[in-house]
Design a protein around this nucleic acid. Sequence first.
DNA 1: AAACCGGGGTT
DNA 2: AACCCAGGTTT
Length: 344
Amino acid sequence: MFAKKIISWYLKNKRDLPWRNTDNPYYIWLSEIILQQTRVQQGLPYYEKFVENFKTVEALAAANEGEVLRLWQGLGYYSRGRNLHKTAQVVVREYGGRFPDNFKDLQKLKGVGRYTAAAIASFAFNESVPAIDGNALRVLTRFFEIFDPIDSPSVQKNIFDIATDLMKNVDAGNYNQAVMELGATVCTPKNPNCEECPINIECKAFENKSVSQIPIKAKKTKVSQKFFQYFVFEHKGRYWLKKRADNEIWANMYDFYLVESENLDYHENLEKTIEEFNIEVESVKTYPVVNHILTHQKQQIAFTEVKCKSASTIGNGNWYTIEELDDLAKPKIIVDFIQNLKKG
DNA sequence: AAACCGGGGTT
DNA sequence: AACCCAGGTTT
């Protein structure tokens, strides 16, 4: 009954989203990678861009990684973009351009875990396997009034098993979409609209007025404090940027010269850096420190613009005009800074 | 400031 | 199973 009620609610109330009008695994995979850790509202324009630029997995595989990262710019968690490109190449080279057609094999692809594999397997191939994202997890824990912590792997496994039973003999794709859509639009984290919920009668948490307490997380996110300083070297309208290495954070993306420090002694960083690269300084401009709050880190980032008397050699970087910078994939903090630079 | 969209990857 | 993640946006 659970499944059928939810599906019928979904068919009447679903949002019309482009990836819901296809069973092409390439488009579904693309949308799911974009939507990892990302709201529909934010991911939608990126999906449109990618579909337009890369109509097939072959087209995506043939692109340069730089192009892919440039299109991904601003979306965050850039390893998704790199995995997207790598996986496209694997699918073309090793799978003959056809995505694996089942839950188990899909998880072999880089960037495709349990949730994403279940989503593709059910939407594209109608395999009966539950796609449990945060929305579905919230719906299920509330419906069964599960007070166990959802960040425990064993609890997640139990819920996966329960969900597997629930979806027997129903349309797997629509069922999975339905549960997630209910979580996204009705069974929301705060102020859920229980009055309009199609399954409120059978919802244990609703019955016992415990909706606002569920789901429960055992662990709190740890937040650490970090200090960074960017040196924006400028010479005759050109700016120095470096392509980051393959094995580090923001891999293969471009940014200014970066120093991480133990504290806020940004002056010392400046002295050291100028000395290290033997830079002839014309002038120094200090920008207000930016507080950058991330999920796991509080960052204080200082931008220091150094106008140089010559375009010296500074590590493995190059000097670019503002216009040339547009074509390089950069983290958003850099994009934003350049935006301000342009404004003056 | 914390929560949210969280899943995937590594150890 | 524990731990990590150089995100953007909303509450």
